[in-house]
Simulated assay, not measured.
Amino acid sequence: MERLSPEERRRRSERGKITARDVLFQPEVRARTMAPEVRQQAGRAKTETILGWCPPHLRDTYRHLVNRKHIPAAEARAMIDEEVARQERARLAALTPLQRQIERLEKGGTLTAKFTPKKAEHAFTLGGVGSGLL
C-alpha cells in the first residue's frame, strides 16, 4: 500500500466505501456474518493462525501461563516447547526398538542392506607394506 500513488489509494478507498455501503452493511449480509456459528468458526481459524505452533491439547496451558501467570509469551512458548519435547521423549522411551523402526517405516523411511566390508584380496597395503592377513 505504501508504494501506491495517491490517486490509486483514493480510488481504492472510494471503492471500499461503495462495497461496504452496497454489500457489507446490508442487513442480510450482517446477519449471516454475525451468526454465532460463523463467529465461532472465525475464532477457531484465528486461534489456529496465531497458535498453530502449539499442539491443541496444550493451548489452554499456554493461555494460562500468559494470561494468568503473566509470563512473557516467548518464555511461555519455550516452556510449551520443552513440554512437547519431554512428552515425545517419554513416548519414544515407551516404544520397543521394533516399534520405533516400524514407526520410521510408516513415516517414509526405507530399508537398506547392512554394509559388510569385503575381506582384502591381497596381503599388502597400497603403500607396499605387508599386512600378514594370509
Rank of each mutant, 00 (worst) to 15 (best):
E7P: 01
T19G: 05
G43R: 12
T49G: 08
E103A: 11
T116R: 07
R12Q: 12
L65S: 00
E7V: 14
R15G: 08
S5P: 03
S131G: 07
K114G: 03
R21M: 04
F115M: 08
E121Y: 06
P97F: 14
L111D: 04
G108F: 09
G52K: 08
A78M: 07
R12G: 04
P97L: 03
I18M: 11
K114V: 14
L126G: 15
R10P: 03
P27F: 02
T19C: 07
D81N: 05
R39P: 07
I102N: 03
A113H: 10
S5N: 14
A78P: 00
T47F: 02
T61V: 09
H70I: 04
L4S: 15
P55N: 03
L111F: 15
R104L: 06
L65Y: 06
E75F: 02
I18G: 05
A85E: 15
G127L: 08
R39M: 11
R86C: 00
K17Y: 02
R39W: 02
K118S: 11
Q99K: 06
H57M: 04
V23P: 04
A113Y: 05
A73T: 06
E8M: 13
K114L: 05
G132T: 10
F25C: 08
R15W: 01
F25D: 01
A73E: 07
H64K: 09
E14Q: 02
H57E: 15
R9S: 06
